[in-house]
Structures are given as C-alpha cells and as structure tokens.
C-alpha cells in the first residue's frame, strides 16, 4: 500500500508533499515516513495519507479559474487613487504574482 507523505518544516508552516512510502498500515507508514522523509530535512510534523484516498483533478479535467476574462476578480484591475493600506498593497502584489503565474496577463 502506498502512502503519500507531507512534511511541515517548522511549526506554523504548511505541510507540503515530499514523497511517499510503501507500508502495510498507518502506524507503519508513519514510522517509515519519519525515517525516509524526516531524517535529513528539518521536520516538525509529517502527514501520511493513503494514496488511494487522494482524489485528483487536473487542468485537463477543468479550466481552473475559467477560460474567459475574470479580471474583475483581481485587485490589480481597479484604478483608485491615494496611498493604500500596507496589507492592501501586499494583497495586490500577491495577486499580481498569481495572475502572472496563471498566465492571465
């Protein structure tokens, strides 16, 4: 049985996928993962998830975020005046990055 493994490097960070292990059950999967994926890189916590329980939907199945113009969803679309609050500026800049990553612009 294959278990997908997600590692969190430090408390407060996100668990991100780092690999998998073969193991007969959850207990063994946790033990194996601790060594296989936690022994070298900094690790605060690991999640193990049965591979078969992972559902997947990809860009071939669905157009994430749509295919027509959805620029009304982005802060970068609006032309306002005056200095913005720092968190608004930060949000807008994160959105600009996301837009670029999505290839919208």
């Amino acid at each position: 049985m294959i278990w997908e493994v997600f590692r969190q490097e430090q408390a407060g960070e996100y668990h991100t996928h780092c690999g998998n292990v073969h193991a007969p059950d959850r207990e063994m999967a946790k033990q194996f993962a601790a060594v296989q994926h936690g022994r070298r890189k900094p690790t605060n916590s690991l999640w193990v998830v049965p591979r078969d329980e992972v559902g997947e939907i990809t860009g071939d199945d669905v157009a994430f975020g749509g295919t027509t113009d959805k620029s009304y969803r982005w802060a970068t679309t609006y032309r306002t005046t005056g200095a913005d609050a720092s968190e608004v500026v930060e949000s807008e800049s994160e959105q600009a990055d996301a837009e670029q990553g999505r290839g919208d612009d």
């Binding site: 009304y72 982005w74 306002t80 913005d84 608004v88 930060e90 949000s91 959105q95 996301a98």
Partner: peptide, 10 residues
C-alpha cells in the same frame, strides 16, 4: 488576506 485586496479595491 490574499483575496481580500480585491474586495477593498473594488
């Protein structure tokens, strides 16, 4: 916070 900037700007 990532999403909310759009709300405020709109």
């Amino acid at each position: 916070c990532f999403e909310e900037g759009f709300h405020v700007k709109h």
